[in-house]
Amino acid sequence: MLTSPLADAPAIREPRHAPVAHVTRGGVVESTHYGSLVVLDGDGTLRFHLGDPHAACYPRSALKPVQAVAMVRAGLPLDGELLALATGSHSGEERHLAATRRILALADLTEDDLRNVPDLPYDPAVRDTWIRQDRQPSKLAQNCSGKHAAMLTLCKLNGWPLHDYDAPQHPLQQVIAQTVEDLTGQRIAHVTVDGCGTPLFAVSLHGLARAAARIATGAPGTPEHRVADALRSHPEMASGTGRDVARLMRAVPGLLAKDGFEGVQTAALPDGRALALKIADGNDRARGPVTAAALALAGVDPQLLTGLTGEPAYGGGRPVGALRPAAALNPPAPPTHP
């Protein structure tokens, strides 16, 4: 389903990151987060970039919407909250576990068939409850179980082997790799193993933003539109109660957003404006404020982003500083769009 010639794979190098956020205390910069980001206009042209968005990087779970598009293209019969779960990184709430079981039941499969690693729930409060109840790590509770359940279900429906669905040479993973290249518009630079055990494909932030835009602008009836509609309609199923990525999608009409471990974030609007970013040190505290600043650069009304721009730094129980985007992310604001 390739729509145009692919660009060469991005270069594998030490990224030339730039400062993207500072933590100030008493008017002095105490800490600096480096990173890279890219913002695209609706026609795909480069609107803003900082750092090194053309170097190869690992998208981690920010790639899950692309993986979901690949599975829908190959016949995955999910929609709504179940497709959102397959596209997301859930918090391990009981509704997430129950929905994962529902996906598995479609193909007469169980938790034992999953090949993701057992874990405690991702959400701290949910995890603490599990520990108090002496519940053990499980494959269902691990944040990628919805994706793995969808992969298994698709393999069962297509007659593909189940025991090695996470192997790079498996037909499922080959379909996903082709879709990654199609939606990013570039060849994959490298393949390794993600934390949950499935193949992880290195692409550039620029390519990742293009993929997010392709999904966000998918025409009705296409796999891209089905995935985007599921995420927009059920952001908490793709993440969890109180998660910042769900609040972001609720705050900005039509926004499609997905986070990933090690400080990765994508976001795209229905008109094709899109962004992708990576916090160099992998620290998650800078991801939200930098995402909000990048969305403002894309033309999103900053008033919609209130509450997503960073937490204060405290001293003696009172605010004495803050985490704020670097000055390079605060040029004169572009015209806002609805």
Rank of each mutant, 00 (worst) to 15 (best):
S138K: 10
P168F: 15
L140P: 01
G221R: 13
P137Y: 15
F201R: 13
L120D: 00
V126K: 02
A125D: 02
E181V: 07
T217W: 07
P121T: 02
E111Y: 01
G195F: 15
D128P: 00
V126T: 07
R127F: 02
L172T: 01
A212M: 12
K147S: 12
L200N: 12
H163G: 02
T153H: 04
Q174N: 04
P137T: 07
Y122K: 05
F201C: 03
T110A: 15
W160F: 09
I176K: 02
L109S: 06
R135P: 00
Y122H: 08
A202K: 04
L157A: 14
K156M: 06
R210M: 13
M151Y: 06
D164V: 09
A202R: 05
P199H: 13
G159C: 04
A209H: 10
P124V: 07
H170N: 07
P118W: 11
A228C: 15
L205F: 11
K156N: 06
G146W: 06
L106R: 05
G159T: 01
A202I: 09
G221P: 01
P124D: 14
Y122Q: 06
C144M: 08
G207F: 09
D123T: 00
V175S: 10
P220Q: 15
R115P: 00
H148C: 09
K139C: 05
L114G: 03
H206Y: 12
R115K: 08
T184Y: 12
G185N: 04
R132M: 08
G195V: 10
A211F: 04
R210T: 02
G146R: 07
G195W: 13
C144E: 07
M151V: 06
I188G: 07
W130T: 00
C196N: 11
R132L: 13
Q186F: 12
G159S: 09
H148K: 06
S204H: 05
G159H: 01
P137M: 08
M151G: 15
N158K: 15
A107L: 08
P220V: 14
N143V: 10
C196H: 06
V203I: 15
H206S: 13
L140Q: 09
D134S: 11
L152P: 00
A213R: 04
N143A: 14
V203Y: 08
D113V: 04
Q169A: 15
D166W: 03
L120G: 02
A177R: 10
D119Y: 04
R210P: 00
Q178D: 12
L183W: 11
Q178M: 14
T192Y: 11
H206I: 02
W130F: 14
S204C: 13
T184N: 08
P161I: 09
Q133L: 15
N158I: 01
V193H: 04
P223C: 11
T222N: 15
N158S: 13
C155T: 00
R132A: 12
